[in-house]
Design a binder for these strands. Sequence first.
DNA 1: GACATTTTTTGACGCATCGTCATATTATTG
DNA 2: CAATAATATGACGATGCGTCAAAAAATGTC
Lengths: 252, 252
Amino acid sequence: MAAPLDNLPRKQREFQQREQLILDTAQGMLHEHGYAQLTMERIAEAVEYSKGTIYNHFSSKEDLVCSLCCRCVSNLIELFQRAYEYPGTTRERFAAIGIAYSLYHQLNPLDAQNIQIVKTNAVREKLSEEKQQELGALEREITQLCMNLVNEAIEAGDIARSENHTADAIVFGFWSMLYGGILLAQSDIPLEDLGFSPVIMLLWNNSQRLMDAYDWQPLSKTTDTDALFKKLCSALFAEEMCKLTQGESHHG
Amino acid sequence: MAAPLDNLPRKQREFQQREQLILDTAQGMLHEHGYAQLTMERIAEAVEYSKGTIYNHFSSKEDLVCSLCCRCVSNLIELFQRAYEYPGTTRERFAAIGIAYSLYHQLNPLDAQNIQIVKTNAVREKLSEEKQQELGALEREITQLCMNLVNEAIEAGDIARSENHTADAIVFGFWSMLYGGILLAQSDIPLEDLGFSPVIMLLWNNSQRLMDAYDWQPLSKTTDTDALFKKLCSALFAEEMCKLTQGESHHG
DNA sequence: GACATTTTTTGACGCATCGTCATATTATTG
DNA sequence: CAATAATATGACGATGCGTCAAAAAATGTC
C-alpha cells in the first residue's frame, strides 16, 4: 500500500516520513489518552515540530484522524486479501474474511473506536473533499472484495440462485452482523455483565448459521466447523493469533 | 415513563417543563444543523434563557446530548414493549421487536446519529456519572426485555435447547445484525451505490433466516413471512407505518 | 563564500466555544 | 414593605482550532 518512497526526491521522501511520524505519534496519543485529549498543539509538541507544520500535512484535526482511519482500513484490506486468496471453497474463504474482521478488531479495539469516531457525522461534515474521497475509495475497495467473492460463489453454484440471494444483500447481511457485533461488544449494551462468551466465537457461530441459511455449500452439517476455524486461523492468521493470546495473558 | 408532573410544587413543574423545552429545542437544532453547529450559546438564545440556566439543567454539552439519547431509547422501549405484548407466538413477538427497531430508525434516522454520537468514546468520557447511569439503566432495560422474550421462547420449547442457544448469544446475534444493518445503511460503506433494496426488508429477511438457523418454531417454511410482516405492522405499528409512507412521498 | 530567491517552519494571533461564578434579578416570607 | 432565599444572567478565563506574516532554512547563482 505505502508508496515506494525510495527513488523520490529527498524532499518528498522526508515529507512522507514526517507524515508517518505524525500519524504514528497521533495514534499513540489517541490510544493512550483518548480523543478528547488529542490536540494539534500536543501532537506538534510530541513530534517536535510546530502546529503550522502539522497543518502543512493535514488540513484539520478531522483530516488527521481520518488519515489514521484510512491506515486502519488499509490494514484490514490486507487481512481480507489474505483470506480471499486462501485456496479453499468459497464458503471457507468467506468465513476466513469473517475471522479476519473479528480478529482485527479483537487485536486493535482502539482502532475500532477510531473508525467509529470518523463515521460520526459531526466529524464527517468537517472532512476535506480529498480525505472523504480517500476513505470512500478504501471503503469501496474492501466492499468490492467481499462482493467479488460472493459473486464467485453464486456463479460457481455454491449459493443457490434466488431473488433474495443477490450479492449485495448477502454481503450486507454478514457485514452488518459482524460490524454490529463488534460495536456491541465494544461499548454498547452491557452484555458482558451477563457472563458473555468470547465475541469472536459468537460471531463465528452466527456467521456459520447465516451461511447455512443462504444454503451456502458445503453446509455446516457436513463440516467440523470448530476444526475449520482452527485450520483457517493457523493457515492465514498464525501471527495475529499469537499476538492475541499474548495480549490476553497480560490482562489475565 | 415521564414523571407525573401534576401534583408537584409549581417550581419543580416549571423546572421540568423548561427541561423539556430545552431538549426539544436542542433536538430540533441538532436535526436541522448538525452536531457541529449545536452550541450551548445558541440553545440558550433559542429558548430565551441564558447559558447559565442551561447549565443549571445539564452539567455539560455532552450530558445534554446524552439526555436526548435517553429520550430516544425510552421511545424505543415503548415500541419494544408493544411488540413484547403482542398476543402471538414467541417467534412472532420477537420478529415484531425487530420490526420495531428497524421502523424506529427508518422513521428517525437523525436520532440514530444522535445515539451514535453518544456511543463515541470521545463523548462518553465526558459524561457525568449520573447521566452514564441513566443511559446504562435504559440500555439494561431494553436488553432485558429482549432477553426475557428469548428465555420465554426457550422455556416454551420454541427454541431447541443447546449449549450454543443461550439467551444472551441469541439476543447478541439479532441485535448485532439489526444494529449493524442500521448503521451500515446510514452512513457507512456505500452499498446504496449498488442499487440497494429497502433496508427494512433486508433486515426482516435476514432476521427470519437467523431465526430458522436457531430452529425457532414455527419455521419460515411453514409461514408466509411476507403476510406475517404486514400483519405485525398493521396490528402494532399502524401509526408509524403511516408516518413512514408519508415521509417517503415527500422525498419522491 | 556572498548574495538573491524560493521553500519551509514558526508561533503569536483571532475566533469560537466551553463552563464558571460574582452579581443582578426575581420570588418568598415575616 | 423590607429581609432573605432562590434563581438567572452574561462577563470572564481557559482551551483549542486554524491562519498568516515574519523568521529561518534551503537552494540556486555568480
